[in-house]
Design a protein around this nucleic acid. Sequence first.
DNA 1: CTGAATCCGGTTCGATACTG
DNA 2: CAGTATCGAACCGGATTCAG
Lengths: 133, 133
Amino acid sequence: MRGPALPPEVFAADCEGRPVFDSLTSRWAVLVLGALRVRPHRFAELAGGIQGVSEKMLAQTLRTLTRDGFVRRSVTGTVPMQTTYALTELGAEVTPQVVELALWVRRHAGDIRAARAAHDTDRPIPPAVANRR
Amino acid sequence: MRGPALPPEVFAADCEGRPVFDSLTSRWAVLVLGALRVRPHRFAELAGGIQGVSEKMLAQTLRTLTRDGFVRRSVTGTVPMQTTYALTELGAEVTPQVVELALWVRRHAGDIRAARAAHDTDRPIPPAVANRR
DNA sequence: CTGAATCCGGTTCGATACTG
DNA sequence: CAGTATCGAACCGGATTCAG
């Protein structure tokens, strides 16, 4: 077992770190961080490049990441307002961990699908267990 | 920038990996994985050791993790049923990443709190922005 | 272009009570 | 001991609309 000895709690259930962890691993934050890791982006670039995100969720995600110090927001101009988002030092430090976890899941999609199939076929159909998720 | 070159998509918005990623980083899964990383646990041990978890959510979390191949469930006895949960090889591989991300957040709680305070005090109180999270 | 405000449907979560 | 069933409350995310 590599890595530091584990504090069994990790987070106490109500730990203040939990909302931060949630926002870092949220549906859109992973994609935003992944994009900003490559280079800074404008709002419209993110909106166009991240498939399926609504403007509301993108703005909300960016606001939370900015507020927590992972992303820096730079505004230029006023009439055609132009904002640029970039990773802060803090954001640059954590982004690889988030992205690599996401990529790990992607790499092991086959294993997981196989495990799921095996698990599901063990018992033909326990109806109560068949609820998706 | 260390780590592999980033596929800009990471996940396409509807990627099948997203539910797995979500379940791995969910509120209780992080705590469950952290506990199982130390040693196998029985259901009641987890229920008692993880502060604030309901039996429903614990069962649901364990079922999902088992289904996706991260946790192995062993049953012995029938009258006082006794189940033990342990990490699989797959689970043992990903757990450190999840736990270390959680611990990173915990280590940087101070930085994040400072960033948040700075961000909030920049503009005295935009009332609409004051909604938490 | 960049974002905030509102409405609203679906999902999730916790509490409680019950079964094997 | 180890879960499952049910229900109401809370939350979240999307579409739309409006403003700077």
